[in-house]
């Protein structure tokens, strides 16, 4: 045993990473209160946003911050306001400061609308593809997650995401992102943003269940994806999305 220890010490000295010692501590820990009957192979989670219903109240953003302790300056979800004038000139802004309230703005508007943004939990997620250490991955139920014991904070995933939904947490110096509230959905709850949306603009559901609201809506085929040309196969489906939105 002492021999084992000294070998470990030696490796530590060699700089193999002291963090590794913590990781190497036995089998998968039990999940208190959550290992009930959740079968992750029985689900494949998707998300839909009906942009015609979004009123831009930012309740989702507030809920996300409170639920997931997201620090100021970075965002797991946000709402974009598009104002397009008669000459197709597009102005976009967000309310990510202070109380997260959109203020009225003067100016001619031919059409205007809100577009909530969130991690697309792409089926072929680039962020997981480019993570050099396997800290970013997609769970079997279709959620792209970050392993905070392995992430080295290189930022490659942040660069690779075409949707700008990843960030480096200024406190932990690790990559972070929307988890679809994995701690909630695996307990049978809805993600905080969906649970707090007053107009039902945000929908969350199981793509493996043909009877889920999400599946029913998607079968009609009237949705659009963000930047489909990236080949990422996003799982966030937009209903009623304006052509200007990318």
């Amino acid at each position: 045993m002492s021999k084992e220890l000294s070998r470990r010490e030696l490796l530590k000295v060699l700089g193999a990473g002291s963090g590794l010692l913590l990781i190497h501590c036995g089998p998968v820990p039990p999940l208190p209160g959550t290992e009930t009957d959740y079968d992750w192979e029985a689900h494949f989670w998707g998300y839909a946003i009906d942009t015609t219903k979004c009123i831009g109240c930012n309740a989702c953003m507030r809920a996300c911050r409170a639920e997931n302790d997201v620090p100021e300056g970075v965002n797991r979800t946000w709402v974009e306001r598009y104002r397009i004038d008669a000459h197709e000139s597009v102005r976009v802004d967000i309310a990510d400061k202070g109380d997260y309230v959109f203020e009225p703005v003067a100016g001619d508007v031919a059409r205007a609308f809100f577009v909530p943004k969130i991690c697309n939990h792409c089926e072929k997620s680039v962020c997981s593809q480019v993570c050099p250490v396997g800290a970013s991955y997609m769970s079997k139920d279709g959620v792209v997650l970050v392993d905070h014991q392995r992430c080295i904070g290189c930022g490659y995933c942040v660069q690779a995401c075409p949707y700008g939904t990843r960030y480096i947490d200024p406190r932990t110096h690790m990559a972070d992102k929307c988890t679809l509230c994995y701690h909630r959905i695996t307990r049978g709850l809805q993600p905080a943003c969906v649970a707090s949306c007053p107009t039902g603009a945000r929908m969350f559901g199981d793509l493996k269940d043909p009877k889920s609201t999400l599946s029913t809506v998607l079968r009609q085929g009237r949705y659009r994806l963000l930047r489909p040309e990236m080949g990422t196969h996003p799982k966030c489906y937009y209903l009623g999305l304006d052509r200007e939105v990318v």
Binding site: G15, G17, G19, V130
Partner: peptide, 28 residues
């Protein structure tokens, strides 16, 4: 400079311990 930039420099060797070969960076 890479080590200085890394958010978690003590984990730098993860890139050799558990390289994820779909990543262009993993072979580094």
């Amino acid at each position: 400079p890479l080590l200085i930039h890394l958010g978690q420099p003590t984990r730098a060797f993860n890139i050799m311990v558990t390289p994820n070969f779909t990543s262009a960076m993993a072979g580094f």
